[in-house]
Design a protein around this nucleic acid. Structure first.
Length: 266
DNA sequence: ATGGTTGTATAACAA
């Protein structure tokens, strides 16, 4: 069974609905993780997704943040909170078991700047995620961690690494925190399939012509456990939606897996 | 130099 998975920071689901629906129609993924839906559940366009053939589970919040998972089939199990989270916490995490695969969808805190308290919150979020993975799952089980991770893992993942070194999104403490999550047993799937390509997933609105000039960052990721890495057929970034009218500042990342390959244990 | 634009919600705030 070919299983297509995608992640997209939509930056406001209501503003992005036409682009997202068209993308679903064109690519027909089994699962789409979304971040920054900036919507409460009552304002989320559930019916439009249903008409497109998707069931959506979401963790919303007024105005900011918010994550959602759109699936072809109803997930077997859904989790809305990292361990220890209280109901007041920002909506940045959810997980669902779909087609036998655990899908962990995060909108990692951006961090504002390295000297801001939000930066420590970002590092703590990554540490908590690692602990949660460690306590709940085995790295030899099929699991995807995806979303807007808000960290560029390496120099080739930012348009000007010398200028960005130490900035939020490309700070050594963030790269270390990300390495710690990875060390649990995850593979950066885009990088596995494209070891040398400089390919971004985010281009800031505030930089004039940033997309045209390719002044971007690779912040959106699909990281998977070993069995899924082995079962993966392809992983790529679709830059097309970033060039449309009224785009998100991010663009989708997708991957294809051969799940029958996974289940046969080979 | 510390800008710039965008979405949400309708005044600022976050990114």
């Amino acid at each position: 069974m070919e299983w297509k998975f995608a992640t997209f920071n939509v930056n406001g689901i209501r503003a992005r609905l036409p682009i997202v629906l068209q993308w679903l129609k064109d690519h027909e993924p089994h699962v789409l993780c979304m971040q920054e839906i900036k919507s409460q559940e009552k304002n989320f366009p559930l019916a439009a997704f249903q008409e497109a053939g998707y069931v959506v589970s979401l963790r919303g919040q007024k105005s900011f943040n918010g994550v959602a998972i759109a699936c072809r089939t109803q997930p077997e199990e859904i989790l809305y909170r990292l361990d220890g989270e209280d109901s007041e916490e920002e909506a940045r995490f959810m997980a669902a078991k779909v087609d036998g695969v655990w899908v962990v969808n995060t909108y990692v805190p951006q961090g504002r700047s390295p000297d801001h308290p939000a930066f420590q919150f970002k590092l703590a979020f990554l540490a908590r995620l690692k602990r949660w993975l460690q306590e709940k799952f085995q790295p030899d089980s099929p699991l995807v961690w995806a979303g807007d991770i808000n960290v560029a893992p390496a120099a080739m993942d930012v348009f000007d690494p010398q200028r960005m070194e130490g900035e939020v999104g490309f700070h050594p403490d963030e790269r270390t925190a990300l390495e710690h999550v990875k060390a649990w047993g995850l593979v950066d799937l885009y990088r596995k399939h494209h070891p040398f390509e400089k390919q971004f997933t985010f281009w800031d609105y505030r930089l004039p012509m940033s997309f045209k000039r390719n002044l971007g960052w690779r912040l959106d990721h699909i990281w998977v456990t070993a069995p899924l890495a082995k079962a993966s057929v392809d992983c790529s970034v679709d830059t097309q939606p970033r060039g449309l009218d009224k785009p998100s500042d991010h663009t989708p990342v997708w991957a294809v897996f051969n799940l029958s390959h996974l289940r046969s244990g080979e």
